[in-house]
Design a binder for these strands. Structure first.
Lengths: 148, 148
DNA sequence: TTAAGTGCAAAATCTTTGCAAATGT
DNA sequence: ACATTTGCAAAGATTTTGCACTTAA
């Protein structure tokens, strides 16, 4: 972790009036390091030194503040990812595509992808969309291809 | 429940080599009666006479057989719905739009809606899509409108 | 100094597993 | 009759709550 990113995390906590504690900084650097969402069990594994309860509280706090977002994978397990690294305050779009690999179970947040307009049946007033795709991610897809 | 639908449920169980037991028929009629998915907690409430464990096993069995499908709502709670009433064996499409009302929390399965094509980043090989929309369902939307 | 955050213990839930009794075929 | 399915008890797992101790500001 560079000096720069470290400072970024501290600024992020400041911005949300959260104290800059070791566990919180660790969670931030952990989640920021990956371009895929991380499941709660995985987080617990990596952060074995942080108390399980503390982790729950940190994740909830971050989610409430809009620092991270939660997405459930195919098994109903909560996965967490930094709220669209490029999701600035002014331009907060919840329209993600989440790609859940059926092989490695990773959840990719493909924020850049546009979700096309859809016309819902009469009466429904949507305020947000989330699209899930399942299938093989590039990594697993490559492995399958090699095996052939 | 009409004679006709009752027979339909029994046929459905037969087809999947499941015994026609009272709890199973009850679950089927319960889920078929609604056009929205039902959460596990709600199911437990309505089926208080059926053992909790039995309900788990019935739902799992039905899901494995493809009789019902499971969808997680915004809170990560499992909701169940009949597998697209019109989802015949030959034409099984997993592409649903699930509409999760933020007011009543109901999950509507809008199976008829087509999900438009999307081009994923290179390398991703999707095999299924599920689209979630959140917002107000027609019923709650009407209530809000009235309140104004 | 003190309000916020952490860690531990313990409660409350949720889900699974094992097994004897009941039920459908 | 016999294989399935149910219901209960009990184990396992997940999530929440309470409270004393610690730490950032």
């Amino acid at each position: 972790m560079t000096q720069h990113t470290a400072h970024k995390f501290e600024a992020l906590l400041d911005k949300h009036h959260l104290k800059k504690t070791a566990p919180r900084l660790k969670v931030l650097s952990m989640l920021s390091a990956k371009n895929v969402a991380t499941s709660q069990p995985d987080l617990e594994g990596v952060m074995a030194d942080i108390d399980r309860v503390t982790l729950y509280r940190i994740l909830n706090a971050f989610e409430e503040k809009g620092i991270i977002h939660k997405v459930f994978d195919l098994n109903g397990t909560a996965n967490y990812a930094m709220c669209s690294s490029n999701c600035e305050e002014n331009h907060h779009h919840d329209e993600h595509l989440h790609f859940n690999c059926t092989s490695c179970n990773n959840v990719y947040c493909l924020d850049e992808l546009e979700i096309p307009d859809l016309h819902l049946p009469k009466g429904f007033k949507p305020d947000g969309f989330t699209l899930y795709a399942t299938g093989l991610c590039p990594k697993c897809n490559k492995v399958v291809a090699k095996a052939r």
